[in-house]
Design a protein around this nucleic acid. Structure first.
Length: 888
RNA sequence: GCCGGGAUGGCGGAAUUGGUAGACGCAGCGGACUCAAAAUCCGCCGCCGCAAGGUGUGGGGGUUCGAGUCCCCCUCCCGGCACCA
């Protein structure tokens, strides 16, 4: 239970007394510091400065209501980097904005009968205040809000440019359809295959949509990953796998339909197994399936069944694989053998050809499918030393590295690549196929049948068809007073929005009511920060100064979609001549998620109730092991649901506002940095916050003791003279920790930087000889370093103490601290002594000792003699500066 | 299911990338101050053991003088899977 009093109970200031220390009052000093930064326009960024630029960008928030811990973590990381680089002499830009379109606003509208616009703008106002109270060094003059016409106008303008270039086009796409509400559902709104509001079984439905041709950039998006050394390997790997370049063979099974010759096209990466094909499978929507179903009611019913369920890939991959024969046979392209075509619920129409060849002997899914339906299995690959059996699937059946062709006629004995080449050549000769590169990446469908998004700037005219809105009529403004009711897009009922005249013929026409995917908004906002005030162009020369972003920071959950779309958008902007850079983000830091415990009770009937961890008390045994948990309010047990990301649905969020109000922004920021490595998940802990607050109180108290008791004596001594060992040791610790902290900062490992500041304060508190001039000098030097090292993490307290101690007017202007080699130097060092790899003691040697001298000292040591038990040393391993290991 | 990541004391985490495992902090225990409590300060704190010592980084195997770190196999957890953002 926390016992730190809230700000309101803190007594008045007592600065006047010479030996009195003011109580640490974060509310007061944080407000004063923030006011100082505001008034001095400290974070206003301009292009003209003759310093290297550093554009530090955090992913902008969705204005969901209030900040959550993930935001605090994200923006603290960004702010630490911004302030650090600023002190390093960079011209820093750190902007902020709002990813303001999206589904939650419509849900809130339905729940509260408030228009999404009002809800969104209210949230923005509140969250902006919160961000300001955290003291982030943001240039608010560049704020961008994606739901405002001055921003989304350029989405529309750019979409029209892409349309002209053929990079935007129309085709049909499959969506989740709720048959009761008669509306399209987001994947998130489909729960166990049913609509979240109606409970109706969701259907797949094909509707016309607009797509952006990201696949035209697949090659560059993949290849350019190599030009991004500042990106984490894991993100690059995920993107490369997502783009998914694969080499294979596209080929056809010829057949006759109503007397006419036809071809069933498929694609495979395993053409070497083509002689093992025993059937084909097509998607339910495949024309061949439709044809076969005409006179086959059972098949028609099965196809209907396949159309049920969600469109999510995870669902498709985990569902039970089902199929039904069509009764249609095609010819094997090489042998001419008859091969039956099946409809399979696992074949996707939207991917590849919507049809696959099946080789049950060498594909795991086909194997199980064949076993289930009693289809033939024909082995055509063999691995030496392994024997094929129909009983169970074996990993090696799909091994292309060690396998060779068997039972494959002229291809027998060929390895994977030789077989693929030979078979592709033969298919090509017959005009039935060829080698082909295929991509897993699909074009980006941007149409959303939703209200709260950027209108797609198109007009439907009965005479002229679909006509783009002319540039001079942009933006197509979204009405801001609609309240959605869950039954489709309310724009369809807005005559004032719908009614327009055709730009071509002038006749009465209808506006397109689909809006854009919100990923469009976030694909280029980082460019707009450079020129947010430009009303006549999407970007201008200032973008060339600031971009690309030097450091981008955001959640790992965006590793693929957002980051890939942004890279794509940048390349299109470049090809349209708007910018000159190829990649938007030079360095990327993907922060881990913020997690918390989940507690719940499951009543015998009714819904699960989740309880916030703050309302739950844990029971421990004598040794501190957890033995249970009870709800504080009624003392009855609750069940543990493990840990998970903070979310409304699991009721395990922690409100940062309470944290800021109770402890102050500096404590919140320090704890966020201290609790874990920025790239790892962070498990929330209330008690850890107390420790951070205690540390800042100690910093404060130490600062005031220094000012009141010691500082005046510090000038009497210069630190280049030889210091007494206790003082020299303290100084070594300060500079050693600074050195380590600078090393860690370069690795963006802020948790150990925070630790280093704690170690430095610990060292300063132990400096011997308080009252002497030498003590004062060592302590003042150390504290000066501490304040600068700590200032990016906890800027307010450091700002205040820096001025109080007279170190300068503004710590923002101070240079970054560097360790002094002279302070680190040591005459004698201690090495770890091991015998047979086990720790047995230590040896002291002169810092400059040679390998032989170290060996000698080690062998002569008492600890070594004891543990060698008189046996001769077989080998002595010396690791300079670390250890010596004697092997006997 | 597929792709990516993770697992270290009672807890969050550290370990200079193969060299003292547990830095720093939280919790706990003991003590000082106090009429008392809070705050603050000092000390102890992986596990087993009185100790000597042994043992220990999710589990199993391997490489090495030496493995949390490298290799192989397995388990569990987290993120993403194209309409949550």
């Amino acid at each position: 239970q926390s016992i730190i009093p809230p700000f309101t109970t803190i007594t008045t200031s007592i600065r006047e007394g010479p030996f009195m220390q003011e109580k640490y009052n974060p509310a007061e000093i944080e407000q004063a510091a923030q006011q100082h930064w505001d008034q001095s326009l400290a974070f206003r960024a301009t292009e003209s400065a003759g310093k290297p630029k550093y554009y530090c960008l955090s992913m902008f928030p969705y204005p969901s209501g209030k900040l959550h811990m993930g935001h605090v973590r994200n923006y603290t990381i960004g702010d630490v980097l911004s302030r650090y680089h600023r002190m390093r002499g960079y011209n820093v830009l750190q902007p902020m904005g709002w990813d303001a379109f999206g589904l939650p606003a419509e849900n809130a509208a339905m729940a509260n009968s408030v228009p999404p616009a009002k809800w969104t703008f209210d949230n923005i106002a509140y969250m902006k205040k919160q961000l300001q109270s955290l003291g982030f060094a943001i240039d608010w003059a560049r704020e961008v809000t994606t739901c405002k016409p001055d921003y989304y106008k350029w989405n529309q303008w750019f979409f029209l440019r892409m349309l002209e270039k053929g990079l935007a086009y129309q085709k049909t796409g499959v969506v989740n359809w709720d048959p009761i509400d008669q509306t399209v559902l987001a994947n998130e709104q489909v729960i166990d295959g049913r609509g979240w509001r109606t409970g109706a079984l969701v259907e797949k439905r094909e509707i016309p949509m607009y797509y952006l041709a990201i696949t035209q950039y697949a090659e560059e998006l993949l290849g350019a990953l190599d030009t991004l050394p500042g990106w984490p390997e894991r993100v690059k790997t995920m993107q490369a796998n997502w783009i998914g370049k694969s080499y294979g063979v596209r080929f056809a099974f010829p057949y006759e339909l109503d007397g006419k010759p036809e071809k069933l096209w498929v694609f495979t990466t395993r053409a070497d197994t083509i002689m093992g094909v025993t059937f084909c499978a097509v998607a339910a929507e495949h024309p061949l399936a439709t044809h076969a179903a005409k006179h086959n009611p059972k098949l028609a019913a099965f196809i209907e069944e396949c159309k049920q369920g969600s469109v999510m890939e995870a669902d498709m991959a985990t569902m039970e694989k089902k199929g039904m024969p069509t009764g249609i046979f095609v010819a094997h392209p090489l042998t001419g053998e008859k091969v039956e075509v099946w409809v399979g619920n696992y074949v996707l129409m939207g991917y590849g050809e919507g049809a696959v060849m099946a080789v049950p002997a060498h594909d795991e899914r086909d194997f199980h499918f064949a076993k289930q339906y009693g289809l033939p299995i024909k082995q055509v690959i063999s691995v030496p030393g392994q024997s094929f059996s129909l009983d169970a699937w074996q990993e090696w059946y799909a091994d292309k590295e060690h396998g060779v062709c068997v039972h494959s006629g002229k291809y027998d004995g060929l390895t994977y690549s030789d077989a693929v080449n030979a078979i592709a050549t033969d298919l090509s000769t017959k005009n039935l196929g060829d080698k082909q590169v295929v991509w897993r990446l699909r074009d980006w469908g941007i149409s959303r049948q939703r209200y709260w998004g950027c209108p797609i700037p198109l007009i439907h005219c009965e005479q002229c068809g679909t006509v783009p809105v002319p540039d001079d009529q942009l933006p197509v403004v979204l009405p801001e007073d609609c309240v959605p009711d869950g039954s489709g897009n309310p724009l369809n009922k807005r005559e004032d929005f719908l009614a327009c005249s055709c730009p071509k013929c002038g006749a009465k026409a209808r506006r397109e009511t689909d809006t854009m995917d919100t990923f469009v908004d976030s694909s280029w906002y980082y460019t707009r920060y450079a020129c947010a005030d430009n009303g006549t162009a999407m970007v201008d020369a200032r973008a060339e100064y600031w971009l690309p972003v030097d450091q981008y920071i955001g959640g790992i959950e965006h590793a693929i979609l957002h980051l890939l779309y942004s890279r794509f958008w940048t390349k299109v902007m470049r090809d349209l001549g708007l910018v000159k850079f190829d990649e938007p983000f030079k360095h990327l830091l993907t922060q881990g998620m913020v997690l918390n415990e989940i507690y719940f009770r499951k009543p015998e009937s009714g819904r699960i109730a989740y309880y916030n961890p703050a309302d739950v008390e844990l029971k421990h045994d004598d040794k501190g092991n957890r033995i249970g948990a009870v709800l504080k309010s009624d003392g009855q047990p609750v069940e543990s649901g493990g840990i998970g990301t903070m979310s409304k649905s699991k009721n395990n969020g922690v409100d940062p506002q309470a944290l800021i109000e109770q402890y102050g922004a500096d404590t919140a920021r320090f704890f966020m940095m201290f609790a874990s490595h920025p790239e790892q998940t962070l498990e929330w802990s209330d008690s850890g916050v107390d420790g951070s607050y205690r540390f800042l109180k100690r910093v404060w108290t130490f600062g005031w003791r220094l000012k009141n008791e010691w500082l005046s004596k510090a000038k009497a001594v210069t630190l280049d003279t030889k210091l007494e060992e206790g003082l020299a040791a303290a100084r070594r610790e300060v500079h050693g920790n600074l050195k380590q902290a600078n090393y860690d900062l370069a690795k963006l490992q802020f948790n150990t930087v925070a630790s280093a500041t704690m170690k430095i304060l610990n060292a300063l508190e132990r400096v011997p000889g308080a009252g002497s001039a030498a003590h004062a000098a060592v302590v003042s030097e150390g504290f000066n370093i501490l304040l600068r090292l700590l200032s990016p993490i906890t800027p307010h307290i450091c700002h205040d103490l820096w001025r109080e101690l007279g170190y300068g007017d503004d710590i923002l202007q101070a240079p970054w601290p560097e360790p002094l080699e002279a302070a680190l130097a040591q005459d004698e060092i201690e090495l770890v002594l091991q015998v047979n790899g086990k720790l047995r003691g230590a040896v002291k040697v002169p810092a400059a000792a040679s390998k032989e001298q170290i060996e000698h000292a080690a062998l002569a040591s008492e600890a070594a003699q004891k543990h060698m038990e008189g046996k001769p040393a077989k080998k002595v391993v010396v690791v300079p500066g670390r250890l010596v290991n004697i092997v006997v």
